[in-house]
Design a protein around this nucleic acid. Structure first.
Lengths: 120, 120
DNA sequence: CCGAATCCATGATGATACTG
DNA sequence: CAGTATCATCATGGATTCGG
């Protein structure tokens, strides 16, 4: 079911703000997207998101872990292995990522075909 | 139509990144959400998004204008009036905001009822 | 008055070197 | 391999000032 986008939610906390508070980091959407296809090791994530730095990847993953979106598993091996997976809460965000994927795909198509992103 | 979330888009540019590049600012999602119900004056936006500062609201709106998401109209009046409205491209992002609104609403319900955001 | 520009403070993110 | 430490840069917050 869809909840009304309008009239604006002025009574309580805005649900869009609630969502953005959890995923508005510069990279959290991408991390979420990449983990939707299954758990990944730290190095794997870094490899498929080359533009992020080690430091920021670590920080964003830790925040997502604190927010209950990501689960972190450390294996006592040599060399060390750390795997990140989405929790059920994280997986429940799939529709958000899906809509971003759809929009971005259409946007890229328009830019490729017409040279500008006009939506008509 | 939905585009595949997996296998990961490794060949070209990631559509999720494309989308996030346009709306990953800390407040752009909220601004987009608030403008979905119709054009707003600068002061109106500030009033319904109290936590944002004048400076940041200005900057984010200008970026969204450059990206073709928002249209800015200045009226030569006293006192001055500046209105912001979504372009067609901006309106086409409605499904993204809708999915965030849905998710945030469900999240708030679970927190209100159970005290924690577990997704079951 | 309203919208915005300016100046400075703080927080988030980037780059590089280094460690258990 | 998976980080941590340190410093640099960029994004955002706060207060004040300005033009119309």
């Amino acid at each position: 079911m869809h909840y009304p986008l309008t009239p604006d939610c002025t009574g309580g906390v805005c649900p869009v703000e609630t969502t953005l508070n959890l995923i508005s980091g510069k990279w959290k959407g991408i991390i979420l997207y990449r983990l939707l296809s299954g758990k990944k090791r730290f190095g794997e994530l870094k490899k498929i998101i080359p533009a992020i730095t080690f430091r920021t990847l670590t920080l964003q993953l830790r925040q997502m872990e604190q927010d209950g979106i990501v689960e972190r598993t450390v294996y006592a091996e040599v060399p060390p292995r750390v795997e990140y997976a989405l929790t059920d809460l994280g997986k429940s965000m799939k529709p958000i990522i899906q809509s971003m994927c759809d929009w971005g795909t259409n946007y890229q198509k328009r830019v490729d075909q017409t040279g500008n992103p006009a939506s008509n």
